[in-house]
Design a protein around this nucleic acid. Sequence first.
DNA 1: GACAGACTAGGATGTTTGTCCTAATCTACG
DNA 2: CGTAGATTAGGACAAACATCCTAGTCTGTC
Lengths: 191, 191
Amino acid sequence: MKDKTTRDHIVEAADQLFYQQGYEHTSFSDIAHSVQISRGNFYYHFKSKDEILDAVIHVRLANTQKMLERWEIEGEQPVDRIRSFIHILIANRAKIKRYGCPVGTLSTELAKLDHGSKDEANELFTLFRVWLRRQFKLLGRKADADKLAMHLLARSQGVATLANAFHDEKFIKQEVKQLDDWLNSCVENTV
Amino acid sequence: MKDKTTRDHIVEAADQLFYQQGYEHTSFSDIAHSVQISRGNFYYHFKSKDEILDAVIHVRLANTQKMLERWEIEGEQPVDRIRSFIHILIANRAKIKRYGCPVGTLSTELAKLDHGSKDEANELFTLFRVWLRRQFKLLGRKADADKLAMHLLARSQGVATLANAFHDEKFIKQEVKQLDDWLNSCVENTV
DNA sequence: GACAGACTAGGATGTTTGTCCTAATCTACG
DNA sequence: CGTAGATTAGGACAAACATCCTAGTCTGTC
């Protein structure tokens, strides 16, 4: 467990702020203020704002990867693992209500900015997509595994977007219940 | 049919640009350039950028209202009307692929900016929600009409977000087919 | 054709942005 | 202790931004 360097602190603060305020709306001053560091000193660690975004995305990718591997170990059956995915909506419901889904909102923002790192941000979606696809295949849904993965991703995104817009946590629970039912019906329909 | 005033042109251009580039990322110069108007002249028509956003939102609200009323007239049965809603995903698929859903992306952005007009932007969602709820009630689903309306809204949002991230129009068609099936099953389960 | 009011152009203003520079301080090692 | 390299602070910089100002040009009316 190494000590956190200043660089790590910057990335961490940027990660939070990009999520809460959006990438463009977060200024260097915001990050500097949050890390309690001089604004100019910044450029010793990062050459540009884009470079910080890159670092944030890669940290998120690494963390997501780790989370998926953990679910793979903890969940005995593929169904349990997919359920882990569904239930992050519940676990993070307070933050989702306030800021939406960290993956979806960043992806949407970078698409509008036509930002150079938008493809890397979308890799976060791909990570989930590939992982879910594998779980559905293990479930015996070889033919339509990708379709199911995309369907589940889309429904999660929609839930996050509306929960954010309507500031409604109950809606998340309501929809998660339906997703659980849907998942069970996926198992029953195994070929 | 009155002539379009300069003000109308500004709102129209701002509407497009806010959709394509996002609100914050669209500058006065962008809009001025698009309308072929002097930048400074702007402030004769609008006191601030926020005021333009307000105008854009109200135009969108009015247009949405009109569209919903049209669907109400054209669709004989509630099912047909709800189907009209589902199929805007198909009709607008090219733009959705490039820029996402105009309602959802604006709502998400203003939430992050914590902008004063975010509630008004969310009224767009409410417009659809109330309208869909009414249709589901007419369908005989009195008890869970709002639940169904929210569910449908969420799924549409999710489809738009992922189609945008993955630049995938085929996914839209795939999911619309599933939504059509879902809608039919709603009719069958009428109490 | 003169005059008022609606409209426009283009530059000025002050602030905020990302970026860069330099001098100072810390840290580790000989 | 002394010195080199890593790290920091704080201000300088130009560009971009929303906003404001003023002088000019239309347009319709008497």
